[in-house]
Amino acid sequence: MKTKRGSGVSYAKYGYLFILPFFIVYTFFTLIPQLMTFYYSLFENYRDGLTQIGPNFVGLKNYVTLFSPDNTGSIGILKYFGNTLILWVMGAVPQVVIALLLAVFFTSYRMNLKGQQFFKTVIYMPNLIMAAAFAMLFSTLFSNVGPVKQVLLAHDLIDKSFDFLTMKVPVRVLIALMNFLMWFGNTTILLMAGIQGIDQNMFEAAEIDGANSLQVFFRVTLPLLAPILVYTVITAMIGGLQMFDVPQVLTNGKGTPNRASMTMVMYLNNFLTTSKNYGMAGAVSVVLFLVSTGLSLFVYNSLSSQYKDTAHKRDQI
């Protein structure tokens, strides 16, 4: 009988079968398009009126164009990358800080907040609204004839010439605010799950040892939360680098003023609208991909090294 061979029946193949659908979908809808993007970025491929030009192989010409300075010496893509980063940091820092705070409050057995379900639902709510609709709402509220300006004018808080949507700082603040409002609920839920995953004994032990809440937070919660925090920051960063819908709709695709709120993906989109310039758009995508990879690795290494240290110490104990 075959059973003679002992207990060597391998169930691993079933495991592979179960994860197969993901890999098939990933290959066709992510990996292949990604490789195609690399490939197409080496071609001249656009439309002039109704005439299709290309695809003609041009090597790295699109990348050279992308990084060559215009007649005033500035390089467009660097500016848009800077914009994206600024907008992301402005939204993400408060997002993570507030979410962390809320997560700690919600999970604290000492505070034992009433009506938690209600608050969790409410803070998650903005995420359910379509970003474009949310941005439309804000652009109406803050337009030059919108209610916010009227109210502020009526109380003499601003000058008549103050126009939210055409000024650099107000536009950026609005974009950051919208992204913050949309995503802090989501981050809170993630971090709460992270905190609840931490052994309650740790908190109790810390308290018995006489640690105050701040010490518990910085010495216990934060280090043990690091893996989830890394995940949150990296996903938020990838999302942030791809920021598009909110600034696109708020500024009607123009990135006003002086293209100061034009993000990388809005720039990419400019190539795709009228000219259908797949070569240049592909080149921007590739740059975006490389930057995301680089930044993700950096964040992963810097944040998770702390985590590794902690884990290492814990093992020693």
């Binding site: 215009d70 126009d163 650099k168 003023p257 002086n258 009228t274 000219s275 310039n277």
Partner: peptide, 25 residues
């Protein structure tokens, strides 16, 4: 943007040229 005083005329024109390059290669 130039008329509103947010940028000078040269910057406005530069932005216009960038827009043209993106829209009509």
């Amino acid at each position: 943007e130039f008329f509103k005083g947010q940028v000078d005329k040269e910057t406005a024109l530069k932005n216009f040229y960038n827009y043209v390059n993106e829209t009509y290669p």
